[in-house]
Nucleic acid binder design. Structure first.
Length: 421
RNA sequence: CGGGGAUUAGCGCAGUUGGUAGCGCGCACGGUUCGGGACCGUGAGGUCGGCAGUUCAAAUCUGCCAUCCCCGACCA
């Protein structure tokens, strides 16, 4: 992509109505633009990040048997009345048509997926079943805030699992936990699996919490947690403050270390639905014995757009964002520093073409009327992990610099491509 | 939903005895620059959030409304 043609430019001053770090940085860098409170447009750079996050989530959901589908946003009022949530779900958007018909705007999709599953699930042979979607959700938050962290319209992945019994559900619940840990790691996030209340559905649930000052939740957790990751030993104690049976500075019930308290952003949660919805809608299956039983369900959510905001909150410095490689909008940011003639420009164009041919995603700052300093500042703000420079100084080499480091090296085209492919 | 603050050019802001609006950035054009947000010159860009009121005259005073932000409550 040539920066000169990119829709969405960087700006020096963030709009004064943005206070949250993620919203400020993402707006300045040209990733998002606010439409109304809690509702953001995703510009080309922002959409690329969103898609990268979605794809990682998608891969991990597919890996645990998830089948992707897409459910409707405009939903069925009758179904919501049936579950009682038409009146009890306090953040439900209700849209009224010209014919005075009311429609819920989907904040979650149990009311859609369960009646739908009823059309296909008849026998124990149809179970277990895992379906998910990545879709825009609507929640009429009384107060939208913190940029992408709490919006009224946001992108979310929701997976629903269907089982013959509790035991099978519990097995899958553990599988989902592992997938979640792996997925957050791939996104560069240390998401702490935290015990939380079960809301109206059950006694417990698990939230995935990323420690950050901007977080709205508070967790009491074992500091040894940070070191615990997939495949590595470590303590896994963490509870949401709301339900915590222990306090800060008390000793960890598992490993006796002193517990810490921190603000955190909830980037995902998983919880049992048991038979609440299947009973309401009559979702049953016939067992081997010929008897009808209610289907046991689980629900697994991840806030995709919230993750984008979370990553911006966690990975930044005074100059801008520092995207983890896995979600960066482009692999490299190529900068051309003008000379008097068009020699450098021509050479940089060639490098750009070669990189593209090699299948490398490159954002190419080809602007002829911007100073080197201006381009460097923009590159730092946008936060692509690798910066490349072609200038008079670089000769027949190309300068390589990581966004996260000061060190620069000079590589030949071949070395460069080898390193990136 | 309660409390507080804000709204003037694309963005950041200034604008008090009330006299029909200005600065910086950005943008356009010309020129000089060219490795950490360069410089000079010229220029375009505004129903001062909306509606009503007071006044000879309103960005400025009054009322109502809208929107945005923050704190709190809320957040299956």
């Amino acid at each position: 992509m040539r920066y000169s043609k990119l829709f969405g430019k960087t700006i020096k001053n963030a709009p004064s109505d943005e206070v949250a770090v993620n919203a400020k940085l993402l707006t300045k860098a040209g990733f998002i633009r606010k439409e109304i409170a809690g509702v953001y447009n995703f510009l080309p750079l922002g959409l690329r990040v969103l898609n990268k996050i979605s794809n990682i989530v998608r891969e991990e959901m597919n890996a645990i048997g998830g089948q992707e589908l897409e459910l409707t946003t405009l939903q069925n009022k009758q179904s919501w009345e049936k579950t009682g949530r038409w009146s009890s779900f306090d953040v439900l958007f209700k849209a009224k048509s010209q014919l005075d018909i009311e429609y819920p705007l989907g904040p979650t999709h149990e009311e859609v997926i369960v009646p739908l599953a009823k059309q296909f699930v008849n026998s124990y042979k149809d179970l277990p079943l895992y379906v998910y979607q990545i879709q825009t959700k609507f929640r009429d938050e009384k107060r939208a805030q913190s940029g992408l962290l709490r919006g009224r319209e946001f992108l979310m992945k929701d997976l629903y699992s269907f089982h013959t019994d509790e035991k099978d559900f519990e097995k899958y619940y553990e599988i989902a936990k592992k997938a979640y840990k792996k997925l957050f790691q791939r996104l560069g996030l240390d998401a702490i699996e935290t015990q939380a209340g079960g809301g109206t559905f059950s006694k417990f649930s698990h939230e995935y919490q990323v420690v950050a000052e901007a977080g709205e939740d508070e967790i009491i957790y074992c500091p040894a947690f940070a070191k615990a990751s997939v495949g590595k030993p470590g303590c896994h104690f963490s509870q949401n403050q709301e339900i915590a049976g222990v306090k800060e500075n008390e000793s960890c019930p598992i490993c006796q270390k002193k517990l810490a308290k921190a603000k955190a952003i909830e980037v995902g949660n998983i919880f049992p639905l048991k038979t609440k919805f299947s009973e309401t809608f009559g979702l049953t299956y016939k067992g081997k014995d010929g008897k009808e039983n209610p289907v046991v369900m689980g629900c697994y959510g991840i806030g995709i757009s919230r993750l984008m905001g979370t990553i911006a909150e966690v990975y930044n410095d005074e100059k801008g964002i520092i995207w983890p490689k896995s979600v960066a909008p482009y692999q490299v940011h190529l900068i051309m520093i003008n000379d008097k003639g068009l020699r450098i420009k021509k050479r940089a164009d060639e490098v750009y073409e070669k990189l593209q041919k090699a299948g490398i995603e490159v954002l190419y700052d080809d602007r002829e009327d911007v100073s080197a300093g201006g381009k460097f500042a923009d590159a730092d703000l946008i936060g692509i992990p690798v910066r490349l420079v072609v200038s008079e100084k670089t000769g027949d080499k190309i300068e390589w610099k990581k966004r996260s480091e000061e060190k620069t090296e000079f590589l030949s085209e071949e070395e460069l491509i080898r390193r990136l492919v």
